[in-house]
Amino acid sequence: MLPSLYEYLLYLGDNTLILGHRNSEWCGHGPALELDIALTNISLDLIGQARLYYQYAASETAWQSEDTIAYLRDAHQFRNLLLVEQPNGDWAHTILRQFLFSSFQHHLYNYLRESSDPTIAAISNKSYKEVAYHLRWSSEWVIRMGDGTQESHQRMLTALEDLWMFTGEFFLPAPYEDQLPTGIQPLPAPLMQGFWMDRIKEVFSAAGLPVPASPGFQSGGKTGRHTEYLGYVLAEMQFLQRAYPGSNW
């Protein structure tokens, strides 16, 4: 497998694993039982997607598996976007994080369905339907909270201030993206920004939220330079594999 393809698969899988992990922290603690179920469902979809990308990434080496990839790498080897590792905060932060990511992922998978790599195309095609639901659900909640009460509106503004800075990275290609053979990622990342922004504007307008003028200036996750939060996510997630190496579970 080409190193650029391998790293690109990690990028795709790490995004959904880490966001799925974050969302799963809500399980049992959601603001209403129906929302608890919905967010857990999204976690399950995202972790399922990570498994498919990891299985593909691991498929050409005998010593690797989805679990060695998820559990035996350290923070600098993770390729996920900084956004997805940010803490859950309140429901406004969690929903906005999901919406910003899903609206990007929805376009990304739409193109990847046409990837020249048939496995990526198949995984993305299957996952696209899941992401459509994540996007719909998170859009609706951004609107409810943006429009709802003064408190919910204020909380959305705070979440926006905390999270918007991480969105620019979506569209900055990592070296492995530039090195991918033509056709694997049919539309280069920078060209997706316009489509993404259209969705943002539409939903924010319905929510009565401003589209921030500032650029999303933070980056580094795609090449392994993360925020301090990721280390703790991994410490928790990888605990058993690290404490009892080589065991079957």
Binding site: P31, A32, L35, D147, E151, S152, A206
Partner: peptide
């Protein structure tokens, strides 16, 4: 979760009364 449930309720009331901040999707 109280503020979340209140926001959802307030939004649906505004939507019904036509006083939402923005246009529906």
């Amino acid at each position: 979760g109280a503020w979340v449930r209140e926001a959802a309720l307030a939004h649906s009331q505004k939507r019904a009364a036509g006083t939402s901040a923005g246009a529906p999707l």
